[in-house]
Amino acid sequence: MATADLRTIKLKMIFDNGVDEKGKPKLSSRTYGNINYSSTPDEILQAAQALAGLSTRPLWLVEKNDSYDINA
C-alpha cells in the first residue's frame, strides 16, 4: 500500500493589480515556504492578512499548498 508523507507547506498570496486593457484582472503572487505543519487555516489566514498589510495592493486570494512524497 502506498503512503503519503507531507514534505512542505507553502502559503501563496495573490494580489489584485488592477485590470488590463481588455478589462481582465491582473494578478500577482507571492509564495512563502517553511510554514509550520501544525498551522491551522485560521492561523495561516491571520499570517497572510498581516503580511498583506505591508503591501500597497489588495489581497485577492490566499492558498495553502501541501506537497507530499508518495512512497510504495
Rank of each mutant, 00 (worst) to 15 (best):
N36R: 14
M1H: 11
L59F: 02
L45G: 02
G33F: 08
L45T: 07
L59H: 05
I9C: 06
W60T: 02
L51M: 14
N34S: 13
L61D: 13
S29C: 04
R30A: 01
N17W: 12
E63D: 11
I70S: 01
L11V: 01
M13L: 13
M13H: 12
A72L: 02
V19K: 15
R7N: 08
K22Y: 09
A72Y: 06
I9A: 03
D66F: 11
I35P: 04
L59M: 04
L11Y: 07
S55I: 05
Q49E: 15
S28F: 03
G18L: 15
M13C: 09
V62E: 05
W60L: 07
S39G: 09
V19R: 15
Y68F: 02
M13K: 14
R57P: 07
I9G: 05
L59G: 05
L54V: 06
Y32N: 09
T8S: 09
T8N: 09
T3H: 02
Y32Q: 13
S39L: 10
M13G: 10
R7A: 06
L11A: 01
K12I: 03
F15W: 10
D66Y: 13
T56Y: 08
E43V: 03
D16F: 11
N17G: 13
W60D: 07
L45C: 06
A2I: 04
Y32A: 09
A4G: 00
K10D: 07
V19W: 06
A4Q: 10
R57M: 04
W60C: 05
S55D: 10
S38K: 15
I70E: 00
R30D: 01
A4R: 13
A50Q: 05
L59R: 09
V62K: 11
I44S: 00
S67L: 06
N34K: 14
K10P: 00
K64N: 03
L11P: 01
M1K: 07
M1Q: 08
L6M: 04
M1D: 14
G53L: 04
S28Y: 07
N17I: 08
P41A: 01
R7L: 08
Q49H: 12
K22D: 09
N34F: 11
A4P: 00
T40C: 12
N65M: 06
L51Y: 11
L61P: 02
N17P: 01
P25V: 10
I9W: 00
A47M: 15
S55C: 07
Y68Q: 12
W60N: 10
L6Q: 03
D66M: 11
G53T: 02
G23H: 14
R57F: 14
N34R: 15
I14V: 15
A50I: 00
K24F: 11
N34L: 13
S38C: 11
E21Y: 13
S55Q: 11
D69G: 05
M1A: 12
K10R: 12
K10Q: 07
I9P: 10
